[in-house]
Structure formats: structure tokens, C-alpha cells
Design a protein around this nucleic acid. Sequence first.
DNA 1: CCCTGATTCGC
DNA 2: GCGAATCAGG
Length: 249
Amino acid sequence: MSWTDERIDTLRKRWEAGQTASQIAEELGGVSRNAVIGKAHRLGLQSRPSPVKPNDPAATAAAPAPTPAPAPAAPPKAAAPPAPAPKPAPPAPRPAVVAAPPVAEVEDEEEEEIAVEADSDDDTDEADAAPAVVRPAPPILRSVGPGGFLRQAPGEQQAPITPAPPRRLVPAKPSPEMAGKTTLLDLNDKICKWPIGHPGEPDFHFCGDKVNPGFPYCVGHCGHAYQAQLPRRDRRPAPPLPFGGPRAR
DNA sequence: CCCTGATTCGC
DNA sequence: GCGAATCAGG
């Protein structure tokens, strides 16, 4: 396999999106992980936090003291207004939140820009605020999906849901508490299929709202279904699946 | 062991 | 330029 423009492009995108070299190699096919890494370096792609590479020795030597470092981490503010740089600033700060479509990877290619915005965009000058001031409540960063739904921010992710209770063998009979609820038989591609409750429970039903066009859920539930990606390191391990989950090829 | 990315070096 | 071999941390 040779490095066609197309393959290089794919490599660039995946690398910058944070995919591992192995994943990229597997996707491209015909190349090894090493080939991907080697190519990425030759392309001058920004090296990502390597598990091996230490921080620059200069800083380490300069401050070897075991400082507890109470410095509050500045939130990845999207503010870079003044930038008195006479030259175009080359070190583009990598966004802390890589917003990528989750499992349901619709045909992307040329990823649409996803706006990550913090609360309102009124640019009241916070840039020159005293650095000592610790912002009490950092704004929650959310990305906006198609249709305008707000993706749940990583920090807002809920703990894994409890496993569903054992399924009952017979469907619930028509009952008073099901009156007006959206049942399995009511589902179609125009109404939200977000489940309410668990299958087998007497009042298990579906949301039933109008869907966000192109999605199986309403705008509100899209916000739960599609979430911004955390860096691999910081991801919560997936909750255990009831039957061991799908086989990994 | 597995994984990761970085680096080297013969081709 | 390419990538296997190797290194080294998690």
C-alpha cells in the first residue's frame, strides 16, 4: 500500500481527532501501526501526549521541587481575542473537547465544525481579569448538534444505569396506566423512540415526541443520546452489558 | 503480558 | 520516504 493523498488525508483527520495509531492503521488497512506513526511524524503532525515522552526536560530541571501545585487549572476558555501577534500564531491550541459524533457515525468526512460555546458569547472583557480570581462555577461546555440539541457535556454524564430488571414473559396487558402512552406498536420514524422505564414494567413506554429530523429521538433526548467525546484516558469505562455485549470480531 | 507513541536506521 | 525494530512508559 502506498500513501495516496486520500489515505494521507484520512491519516491526518484521524490523528488529529485523537485516534490511536493502531486504530488508524486498522482503518486504513495494509499498513502497520508503526507505519502510521512514522508517516504522521514525517507529515509533521503534532505529537500527542505520549505515554512515554516526559515533559520537556528544561521545565523539569527548572522546577524539580515537589511543588503541590495548587494552581487551579484554567478552564479551556475559547477566548483569544487580543492576540497581538504580529505573525499568524502557528501553535493552534488544540480544543480540549474533541466533539466527534459518537457511535452513530453518520457519513461525516470533512467533519462539520461543531461549535463549542460557553454560556453566552457576550465578550465582556474577562481576558484581563485578575488571574488570581478563581472562577467559582466554570461554564459548562456543550457542543451543539444538528437540529440544535445540546450534547451532554462530559462532566454531566450520568453514572451507568442500573441493569434492566428481568423481562417478563408476557406483554403488559392494556391497563389504565398505559392510557395515552406511546407503546411499541405506536413507534414510527417520526416520533421519539427514547424509552421511558424498562421493558416489562407495567408502564414502560416511549417518549413519543416529534423527532429531531434525521434522528430517532426528539431534540431533548438527542442531547442524552449523543455526547461529546472525552479523551480516551478520561473516559468512563462502558457499563457492563447484560450478555457480555457484541462479539469483538 | 497488553497497550501506547517516539526514535532509529537499513532499505 | 518508508516502515520494521526497538525503546520506554502506562
